[in-house]
């Protein structure tokens, strides 16, 4: 589904990603863990196409198409979804209005018919119920005044509404208490259907107790330093990143 080859990226001429190779087959959940400053969030933002991140080398292929050739909105239409670590507040436009514009933009690109008000609201009802999301939230402006948990739940709700192929979760666990974490994780798990792929970026192993990954990668200093199964995450939780960091430092 997603093939990242020798990816290098910089922010304001400072190299952050230094040759990432990563393949996520259809239906798999991969996790990227790593210490602060290792480039985890940069990877998410490069995938989403944020302008201030410059790709200097390498390629990203999404389902056979060159992602780096696409504008951010095209990437979303092609099935990439990034759940933001810090969802942006947009006062003045209700979540419902915004989502309908998004859903129909994506559907138009995928050559599906536009949802009318009734169909849209049915879809909202169905997806919100699965996430235990209070639909009155959707009448409020996009993310405005939402609690941390509400923001993250709203991101996952948007994900469910847009029906992506490849989901990137950028530190979705940050700022969540255990109950919110469970609800969000259940929402994500409900979207695992054997075809949709996930890249779960997190600093802590805790999230991976709920969203159990097929593969865990450890990102250190802009490269993948180690790859393993879910046990690797547990090992990191016990031992910290120090042992891997020192291995990387020695081999460099």
């Amino acid at each position: 589904m997603l093939e990242i080859t020798n990816l290098h990226a910089s922010v304001e001429d400072t190299p952050i990603l230094r040759g990432i190779n990563l393949t996520i087959p259809s239906g798999e959940v991969h996790s990227i863990m790593g210490p602060n400053g290792s480039g985890k969030s940069t990877l998410a933002r490069v995938l989403a196409g944020e302008e201030s991140y410059e790709v200097t080398e390498g390629s990203i292929i999404l389902d056979g198409k060159d992602l780096l050739d696409m504008d951010p909105d095209e990437r979303a239409c092609e099935g990439l979804f990034m759940a933001f670590q810090y969802p942006v507040e947009i006062p003045g436009v209700s979540t419902k209005y915004f989502l309908r514009a998004a859903v129909n933009a994506v559907r138009e690109h995928r050559e599906l018919s536009e949802l009318d008000a009734y169909e849209f609201l049915q879809l909202v009802k169905e997806k919100a119920a699965a996430l235990e999301l209070d639909t009155s939230l959707l009448d409020r402006s996009v993310n405005e005044g939402f609690s941390g948990g509400e923001k993250k739940r709203a991101e996952i709700f948007q994900m469910a509404m847009l029906d992506p192929k490849m989901c990137v979760l950028d530190e979705t666990d940050s700022g969540l208490d255990i109950d919110a974490l469970k609800i969000v994780s259940e929402g994500v798990n409900a979207l695992r259907d054997g075809n949709r792929s996930f890249l779960v970026i997190t600093h802590y192993q805790r999230l991976l107790d709920y969203i159990v990954p097929d593969v865990v990668h450890v990102l250190v200093d802009g490269r993948i330093a180690k790859t393993g199964d879910k046990e690797l995450a547990k090992q990191l939780e016990n031992e910290g990143y120090a042992s891997i960091e020192s291995t990387v430092a020695n081999s460099a």
Binding site: D73, A76, F98, L99, A105, Q158, L162
Partner: peptide
């Protein structure tokens, strides 16, 4: 950017 990331 947030809106673009949602396909708009």
């Amino acid at each position: 950017f947030y809106l673009h990331a949602r396909g708009i």
